[in-house]
Each structure stands twice: as structure tokens, then as C-alpha cells.
Design a protein around this nucleic acid. Structure first.
Lengths: 209, 209, 209, 209
DNA sequence: GATGAATGAGGGTTCATTCAT
DNA sequence: AATGAATGAACCCTCATTCAT
């Protein structure tokens, strides 16, 4: 049987694979650290046999990598849809910050994904490889920010003298840092949420006409 | 013999502990992922017996946590000294970006530290605990950015209507995002370095008078 | 898969567990000391993988504890059946002394069990706990002696003015001391077997009408 | 330097060796299991360096073996002296039972010694060897019971038709079983102390004229 | 296809013993 | 003589992966 590659559409996913993906997500929610998750953990949550996981994936790394990529695609898609109902750049940024504050579960998955993109783990390499090789940029948050920036520019809301790359990166870094502050407060920031207005204002001041 | 707490000054560190710290740093440089590093790896690099590591540390986690905290303290101290020779806020930010571009080894350590501050691993918890309990904020990069912001404000270079917390956080997030782009290029930013002038300009535009 | 508790009947024991129990008994026969037995020793003798032992037991202590309890249950059961074919109290005691002299292997297990009931080891605690908690008195030799005493009293062979507790304890202590003399001769008793008639006579004189 | 053999008289023992012996006894009192005691435990309690223990003993086993033998000699000597002030056999037995009930610390050491005489451990072998080879029967409890029996016979208090060996063994086994019941009550004997009068009566009935 | 019992390599940790000071 | 830092063999236990059913 052909193995899962991570490129499957939701409706192409076998039932068991969906169960596995759900189990991984559940473990993330519960605060499990990726390197501590075992195959038994996953299959037990999924309610299926351990061997079955190996019918669909070559290794634990593959299973988790595909699971994370799938989740990220879902997240990006969801946020994109959400944005489509919003008109102005300003409101979109505001909406994005709402999302960051709201989705604990998605933040947990997002945070792990961000780490994997810059770590040296076997799993991180696998994920970067999959993204690279299989043109699955859809799972990359940057794609979303490029769209956000592009839209803002074409609608005339964003200054045209800034390179698209920089605007996208800057939006992305603002979001990531806000998310990080929300994620943990050991960084000595008294109240993470109190800096939100400044983040919003900073973005508008720098990029908007 | 008392165990190492992580609060020791460099000249108070036993010879073997220095060797262990050096070995951990070496492994980071070589790209080893933290959760994959074994005690045997470390002591082999350090050229000492495996049991010796346990004479100084209670566990592998303790050893790596202390090692990282030590490295971060060294990095912060080094960058702080480096800043002292520089006058204006603008030049300091520039200088900091130089540092980010220059030090591969330090970036490797810094990146791992950043992940640990927001992950769910046993080691991450240990590190946050150590920082919390033993008032070792000196190892936290945020401390550096608070100083940078404070200095800029008291020298009249930074707008006084922005809260200190926000300025420090914003400087920090700019630095981290630049570092992230340098660290890996899977985010689809063609040339990370090309966005540097924009990062600098963005900082100056937002915060300077 | 549920772990073994030690309460299983013989025919409920999985094949691998029987192999493990057999291996422990074999090691006892070979004179291995309990605290020196390793999990590798046991699984090697059992001819199964090391990890398999942990599929059935939570720890080495659990494995050995269950194994010993099982052996003791078997021994008590065997001796009990043996007694059932014997009529008088006198012949039963004689028969018991025969058994003590005969079974080297069972004596080895019995001796270890007796030590565990009064030592301070982790394994000893585990065994006492298991016996206490799970109403598995069946493995306790005292149970056998209570029955022996009770039967003797109800058949009118034993004096009725002695408390049951004392009779059972006294029978037990006679048996243990004979066993101890047989087990080792460092106590400076020239020929352990030569005292057997006196032990039998002492018992009959004290308890029988 | 010549190593300690275990035959030294108290006044011949080097100061450090006395400290080591005291530390081992202390650990017994605290309920430590012999196989769990480490050399570090002992030397830490003794307040001396770890290497020093190896100046006096060849191995950990030697150290503990000598320590136990020494303690047992002290105990036997002490009980013997105690008996000398008592006239009749009956009172001596009573006195012995008092001693059994009273000395928790000595009972702890005695119990361990009894186990070692019949176990298969490296330490047990060492102890039996030392006793065998170096004619140090003085540490054996049986010696005491031989004396007790002998005295009783020569004073005309004990029946002369019983072999000395049996009387000594019987006295010994009565004492050990009482001690065992006191040591732990998991054997399902409601109140160990309640059987004391029966033990005393049993002894007097069987052996006394 | 699906399962989960079985495996065994590999990791963290302990501790008896040594030896330079 | 006395020390205790250093060592590394050996142990318990985990878990990714396989394969017979």
C-alpha cells in the first residue's frame, strides 16, 4: 500500500490517518513535548493498533511531520477564510491579533511548528524536506502574510516604497512575537496583552499610508 | 561535593565543568538537537568519564540547563560590553544586527535557548525554573533589550510616549525575526540579509524622535 | 495489555509469564542471590526478549515478587494436597518433615521467601504489600500450619488448652528451624538430620494428648 | 598496611575502623537493607574518607562482614555477661526473652546476621567463610545456646536423656521464632507478645525436670 | 487490512574501586 | 596515613519497529 505523503487533501485521507492526526493534535493540546511523544501514545489516543500506523507511515517522524503539516494547512486555510470576510488591512491585522489571542490549541500547534522550522531535529529536517520537495508552501505561515501584504498594497492601503518581502516578514515577526509573549510570560513582560495596542499601532504607523 | 547550580562565576567553575560546558556548546555547533544529545556524547567530547558528569550535576537535564544558562550569560555579557563602546542608539542597534549576522555559534545557542523558553520539554521547564527561582535574569536576552531601551530613552533618543515594556519587546522581536531568517531560509525569503536595512529603518522610524 | 498482579491462576498465566517464573525458579536453584539477579539473567534463561518482561510487569521487583508468590502458592498447595492423604496428626508432621528433607529446590525458594518476609528490601516490602492488599494469604506458610493445628484440635489429637495461634506458631518454628539446619551447617550442628526424631518427639510431647 | 581480618579485639581496633563499624550499625538501625548500603553511605556516616575504608578492608563485602561479625561478638558477649548474674535456667530463659523483646537495635543486627548465614549472597559467603576459616565461633548465637543448655544440664535443671545438640537447637529455634514474630507481624499472628508465656512454658515443660 | 505481542538496541544513572595529591 | 575526585562497567527500563495471526 502506498504510504501517506502529506500532500493528500482532507477528503482523500483514510479514516485511520485522520484518527492519527487527531491524536497528535490532542497530544499537543495536552502539552506533550514532541520528542516525548511515543507511537504508543498516538495510536492509543487514536484507538487503533500500533502496527496500523506503520501501514500508513514509514516512521514516527513521518507520521508526526505529516500530522503537523496537515494541521498547519488547516490553520492557514481557516485564517485565510476568516480574512476573506474582512475588508480593510487594519481590520485584518486586528482580526489576526484576535485569532492569536483566541486559539490556544492552534497556538500550541503553531508554536511547535515554528520550532521545527528552525531546529536541528530529525523531525525538523523531515518537515523542511517535505515542504521543500513537495511544494507544500501552503502550510507555511509566510504565505499568509505575503497575501496579507499583497492585498494591502493592491488596495492602496500600504506604502508602495517598501519591498513586499520586508512587509511580509515584518508582519510575520510582529505576530510571532505577540504569540510568544502570550505563550509564556517568563520573559519578564508583566502583561502580554497590554502591549497589543502598541503592536497594532506600530504596524499601522510603519506600513500604512 | 556540592552540585553545580548554574549561579557560579566563570572563575569558580571546576575544570571538569568547563570541559562539560564546552562539550555541550561544541555539540550545538555541530548541529546536534538537544533531545538527541546523550550524556555519553557530552562526556566523550569533554574527554572525561561519564560518572564525572554526575558528580557535578544531578541529571542530564541539569547539566544541559546549566550549560545553556552559562552560555547565555556569556553571550549577554559579551554583547553588553560590546555595546558600552558605542554611543548612539542608532549605532547600537546597527551593532546588534552586526552581531546577529556574525556569530554562527552564538546564534546556534541562542536559538536553542529561545525554543526552550517556550517549549514543554522537561529541559525547558528546568531552565525556566532555574531562571525564576534563582534570580538569574542575567541570562535573559530581554534584560539586554530593556537596558538598550532605557538608555535610549534617558539619552533622549527614543520617544517618551511609548511604554518601556513595549519598546523592549519590539526591539527583541525585530532581532529574533532577523535571526530566524538568517538561521534558515525555508520561509521563502529569498535573501535574508537584504531585509536588514528595512529592519533598521523600521526600528528608527518607530522609536526615535 | 494488563499487567500481571500475582493473583492469576496457573491456567490463566500467559506462556511468557510461565517462562519468566520458571527462569526465576531456575536461578534460585542455581543459588543466585535475589539482589544479584538481573532482568537480563531472567529473560535470557526464559529465552525471551528483555522488553517482554516489562510488557507483563512494571518492574524487576514486581516480576520477582509475583514469581516468588506464585511458587509459594504452588508449594503450599502441593503440601496441602499431600497432607490430605494422611490421616493422623502424627503422620502429618512426619510427612512434613519428609517434605522438608526432600525438596531442595522448594527449600531454596522457601528460604528466600522467609527472608523477604522479614527484611527491609524494596522487594520484601513489595511482597508483604501484595500479600496484605490482595488477600493472597494462600502463599503464606502460616496458613498451612493453622490448618494443620486446627485439624489436629478438631480431631481430638491436640490439647485443647493451648491457643490455636501458639500451636500454629510453634509448629511453624519447629519446621523452620529444621529447615535452617538442613540448609546450612555452619551453625555447628554436626548432623542436622540426627535431630529430626527429637523435633518430632518434642512436637508430639508438647501438643498431643 | 595489614588489612582488618575481623579477629581483632576491641582495643586493637584502629579508631577509623571503629567509626566504620559504628556507621554500619547505625545504618542497620535506620532500617537500611544490606544490599542497598553503599560505601559512600558508610564512610559519610563514619565521617571519614572513602579511600580510607579501602586502606583497612579489601572490599565493601569485607567491611560489612567484619562489621557484622564484630557486632555479633559484642552482642553474644553482652548477653553472656547478662546471664552470669542470673542463677536458674528458668530465669535465664525468661531473661533471654526479655532481651529479645527489648533490644530493637540488636534485633535488627541479629536478623540480618541470621539471613546472611543462610543466604547465597557474596556477603553471606564471605561471612560464613570468615567464621569457618578463622575459628570465630564466638560470634555464633548457637555457642550461647550450647552454654545455656550445658549449664542447665550440669546444674541438674534439664533432663539428661536429651542430647545436648537437640536442646541447644531447640532453645535456639524458640528464640529465633519469637524474634521473628516480634520483628514483623505480617505472618498473621495477632499479637506476637501474647505467645511469650507459651514459649516459656513450652521450653520448661519439654526440657526441665 | 489490522493488530499488538515481542524484540533488543540504546539511554540515563549508580557505585565499587582507584590513585594522585 | 588520609582523602575524595574520577572512572566506567553494568544495570534498569523505554520504545521504535517488526511480523505472525
Amino acid at each position: 500500500m502506498g504510504k501517506i505523503t502529506g500532500k493528500e487533501k482532507t477528503n482523500e485521507l483514510p479514516e485511520k490517518v485522520k484518527l492519527l492526526y487527531g491524536a497528535v493534535l490532542l497530544l499537543f493540546e495536552e502539552g506533550a513535548e514532541i520528542s516525548d511523544i511515543t507511537v504508543s501514545d498516538i495510536t492509543r489516543r487514536a484507538g487503533i493498533g500500533k502496527g496500523t500506523a506503520y501501514d500508513y507511515f514509514d516512521s514516527k517522524e513521518d507520521l508526526i511531520a505529516c500530522s503537523i503539516i496537515y494541521q498547519m494547512q488547516q490553520i492557514i486555510e481557516k485564517v485565510t477564510v476568516r480574512m476573506e470576510g474582512v475588508e480593510s488591512f487594519r481590520e485584518r491585522v486586528d482580526n489576526m491579533l484576535d485569532w492569536v489571542e483566541g486559539g490556544f490549541q492552534e497556538r500550541a500547534c503553531f508554536n511547535r511548528f515554528m520550532h521545527l522550522l528552525t531546529d536541528q531535529s530529525c523531525l525538523g529536517q523531515r518537515i523542511r524536506q517535505k515542504i521543500e520537495v513537495k511544494s507544500m508552501e501552503e502550510c507555511l505561515p509566510m504565505v499568509f502574510f505575503y497575501r496579507l501584504a499583497q492585498d494591502g498594497i493592491s488596495r492602496g492601503e500600504i506604502r508602495k516604497d517598501l519591498p513586499l518581502d520586508y512587509v511580509a516578514c515584518a508582519l510575520y515577526s510582529r505576530m510571532v512575537s505577540y504569540m510568544t509573549f502570550l505563550y509564556m510570560n517568563s520573559l519578564r513582560v508583566k502583561e502580554a496583552a497590554s502591549i497589543r495596542p502598541h503592536i497594532l499601532r506600530g504596524i499601522l504607523d510603519e506600513f500604512c499610508i
